[in-house]
Amino acid sequence: MSTLTTILIAVAVLVVLATVFGAVLGFASVRFKVEGNPIVEQINDILPQTQCGQCGYPGCKPYAEAIADGDKINKCPPGGESTIQSLADLLGVEPEPLDAEHGAEKDVPTVAYIREDECIGCTKCIQACPVDAILGAAKQMHTVIAEECTGCDLCVEPCPVDCIDMIPVGQDISSWYWQAPTSGVELIASDRRSVGGPA
């Protein structure tokens, strides 16, 4: 058998194999297709849904769409580091520190509170609230439904008499829980330094 024949046989075998496996794979991909959650939905689920617009988009969903189109994942101050981490895990990219341009992460969650005797009933905050969490009518006092407030700050700016405060959400007995123990080997010697910053 000439060398050429050998080569031809080899090539033919490979082509046949490739075709067969290709067909199998193609069939499998159609037959066993897994309907995944669209990526935009998955991103949107991770975002904190404060609808604050600090990312520069009018709400969380638009930002989710922008991320899916390749925007940076570090523009969400309410979500903070944990959201960035989750997004990085989901999208398989490196987590980046929060972009300070869009604001800083809050230490504690806040809710809006209207000092009701100062409210003049202008409805500006009602129009600004992205989740319809402010009740009231023109020339009537307004009030915030604390349960629904996401703490986005969007109502503070438009208020003509500055009667809206963002007050930190306190802890009550039902929301309190034990923190993880801090004593023990974890906090001895060198480990302690990493807690207090680089030595």
Binding site: Q49, Q51, G59, K61, V131, D132, E148, T150
Partner: peptide
Amino acid sequence: AKSERAKERFESRL
């Protein structure tokens, strides 16, 4: 649960 509700409210507002 809260963010889910916020999402719903935002969407219905839109």
